[in-house]
């Protein structure tokens, strides 16, 4: 039913485009924004895009989650979505959490020392 038409477009193309756009939006924020907190937010957007990318590649049509209920027997591998990217992304989410934590701690210290997070103003105050 998803071989053609709008359904095919939505599941076969649109999600990938959205993930690509999300990644680039994050990269844009990291490169262009002058506020350090906004840069960190851009970084988070990039990380979320990568996580969504991995979750999308594990997806297959007409499959179920690779979880067995009580008394069930494992079927053929093609009957399940690929659980490996999910496991990987669990780690990646923890890594993203740690990165954000360290970043916020550093930002707090920068703000206490200099009273600003805007890069041009920060550099001006560092010169003094």
């Amino acid at each position: 039913m998803l071989d053609q038409g709008i359904g095919y477009y939505l599941t076969g193309y649109l999600n990938w485009w959205l993930i690509g756009v999300l990644f680039l939006v994050g990269l844009y924020g990291v490169i262009v924004k002058e506020n350090l907190l906004k840069k960190v937010m851009g970084l988070n957007v990039m990380q979320v895009a990568v996580i969504l990318f991995f979750l999308n590649i594990s997806q297959k049509t007409d499959t179920v989650l690779a979880v067995l209920g009580a008394g069930e027997k494992a079927g053929d591998v093609v009957a399940y979505v690929n659980p490996l990217p999910h496991a990987l992304m669990l780690t990646a989410i923890v890594v993203a959490l740690a990165v954000t934590g360290v970043a916020l701690a550093l930002l707090l210290k920068v703000y206490r020392d200099y009273g600003t997070l805007e890069e041009p103003e920060l550099f001006r105050r560092m010169q003094q």
Binding site: G26, V30, L43, L106, D113, Y114
Partner: peptide, 16 residues
């Protein structure tokens, strides 16, 4: 600290 946060942002983007 400022150098570290700037390194963190670009370094984490690289890891991404």
């Amino acid at each position: 600290t400022v150098a570290a946060i700037r390194y963190l942002i670009i370094g984490s983007a690289a890891a991404c």
